[in-house]
Amino acid sequence: MKAEYLMRRAFYSFLAFMVSLTLTFVLLHLMPGDYLHSILPYLAEKNPDAARMFREQFGLNRSISEQYLLYVVNVVRGNWGYSFLYGLPVLAVIEEKLRWTLVILFPSTVLSILIGMAVGAYSGWRNGSKTDLSVLNFMIFVGAVPSYWWAMLLILIFGFHLNLFPLGGYASIEALDVGVRISDVLRHAALPVTALTISSVPGTYYLMRNSTLQTTGEEYVLTARSKGLREMEILRHHALKNAMLPMVTVIALELAQMIMGSVFVETIFSWPGLGLLTFEALRVRDLPLLQGIFLMDTLMVIFANIAADLSYPLIDPRVKVGENV
């Protein structure tokens, strides 16, 4: 890998963002009625002067290309339009919710990577064994159950029947008096994190299993055996690191999957993050807000990809950023 490769990836990320921007711009303009009509439906009829001022203020009277440029500049400056639902700048709404999403998205990503990789490595190493096949069948089943159904089952069992965890929200009602306590938030986050983790473990597992399976036929594994290493030592010291190489890029892709899962899980647990915000925006057809969320999701995926690109050389010595192989 060379610097040129990284430059190209960066350029793709930039292009992807521009494509997202252009898409949202086009959709906003094809929307029936204009922006103004959506926010203040009767203004143009009742007070044309005010409507004209409004249009000038927002640049709605300019040519399409000018409006596009203006839109791009605005987005880059952090002006992502106004939410119909909240009547607030989209970015401000999203920023606040993003934090809550990360509270559950981060731990569940880490957990599902750790669990999926560990179980997948073991399963792939022992491929064809009874353990492998039963784990594989189990994971195929777990992965086939939709995330929203896992979320509901968890609520039904652990929240409703066993009463071990709260049914939803991010803090108890006492928070009004004593303030939001971390332990309380964690208790509320437990089930959503579990639901997200369960639904994304099988994907990681399946890829890691395949990746590990490929290493079992490698010559360095035979060398390791000839040294007299135990099977588990060979897996840990020799196969694992090699099997992880292709996973790095895949995990960035899986984040997109997690984002989808979080929409359902947050909605079901009333967790006040981007996912629940998506649901609310969908319910009232708040297109500007939805598009803002879409842009934010694009940015998250782009950053995950960049992080993957940068971390790849850390585990594969053959790849050095900015250096010829």
Partner: peptide
Amino acid sequence: LMTLPSFPLLLV
């Protein structure tokens, strides 16, 4: 296009 998160796009 692979970089775009397809589910939010689908919703929009």
